[in-house]
Amino acid sequence: MNALEHSAPTFDEPAVVVGVDGTQIALEAVRWAAAEARLRRLPLRIVHAAPYAAGHDAPAVRRAQDILARAFTVARRAEPGLRSSTHGTEQPPVDALLDAAGNAHLLVLGMGGGERPHEILIGSVALEVSGCARCPVTVVRGRLQHPDRRPLLAGVDEPATDEAVLDVAFSEARRHRDRLLVLHAGGPRHDTEPAVQDDLADQLTSWADRYPDVPVDLRIVPGPPAPALLAAAVLARMVVLGTRGRTAPARVLFGSTSRQVLRRCGVPVTVVSPHAHPRETGLVASAERRRW
């Protein structure tokens, strides 16, 4: 067991999981994840993947332990009463995070980088994980707090096909006492006609009935969804949207709405796959898993 772990990692236990890599944005993600864990009354699991420490090279192991120790200290200071644990592994980052998030309610990642696509898209762990995780994945890049109350923004194609997105969005809005803005974009101009708006509003009725304490606004705009979401996100606390899963590599990196929003959005973005469920096991990593 890692000497920094305050308890043995129990991946079958529901938790909020956060991945760290030693960067400042990762520590911001830890603070965000700690607050979410407190609200959900769940423990926080801090994970660092360090394939560079293979072979138990002493300086590399110390570096990995220092990264975990700093993250643990940030979590403890942010939420003193929260039960937190650390876990280090020599697995590749994507495999390690998917493994550690096995029964997680939420996986949180920080994503840094510049504004040019090759700086933050190629090889990005956050983008790869958000495309295939079995639980919702929140990517933290920008603003975490606002002086005023801002709504939660959910992007949907059709309510009937975005049930997982709406389940997460309504639950999150209730948890934080947010107003929920549901945005539909990407269709032809006739999508803004009253009949279409009425049809989408009717489809949202079941969620509104289940969450009567969540104020809901529906906005329908023509044109591509990514620019519409990014424009609306300027006044949002967080964005929730879906992904259709893995496709061809070029489309995974540059084509999907979720990845365009992740690349450019200034507020945290939660990505939900159609099969996401907080208590599902998730993808199974290699049976050979070494820990220090």
Rank of each mutant, 00 (worst) to 15 (best):
G186V: 05
V140D: 05
A231V: 05
W32P: 02
V125F: 04
G223Q: 10
D191W: 11
V252K: 09
A96T: 01
V182G: 01
A169W: 01
D191Y: 06
T73Q: 15
E79V: 03
A285T: 12
P93K: 04
T192H: 09
V252D: 15
V61R: 07
H118E: 13
P136W: 05
V61S: 03
A133G: 05
D162Q: 00
D162E: 14
V272D: 07
P59S: 06
L283Y: 09
V196N: 05
L97N: 02
P147L: 10
L42Y: 01
L241Q: 03
G282F: 02
G186C: 03
T247G: 15
A64Q: 05
A50E: 06
E172T: 15
S85G: 13
L68H: 02
R244N: 14
G282T: 03
A71R: 05
D167E: 15
R289L: 10
E163R: 13
V196M: 12
E90V: 10
C135W: 02
N103C: 11
R179H: 12
A226E: 02
A58W: 12
G88W: 00
A53R: 04
E115L: 13
P136A: 04
D217T: 11
A248F: 12
L152T: 02
H184C: 08
G186M: 05
T89S: 08
A58G: 06
A58N: 06
A26F: 04
G114H: 12
V182I: 14
W292S: 13
A201M: 09
G223S: 08
R237E: 11
L82Y: 04
L241C: 07
W292P: 15
H184V: 03
R291W: 07
T86L: 01
D191T: 09
P227Y: 02
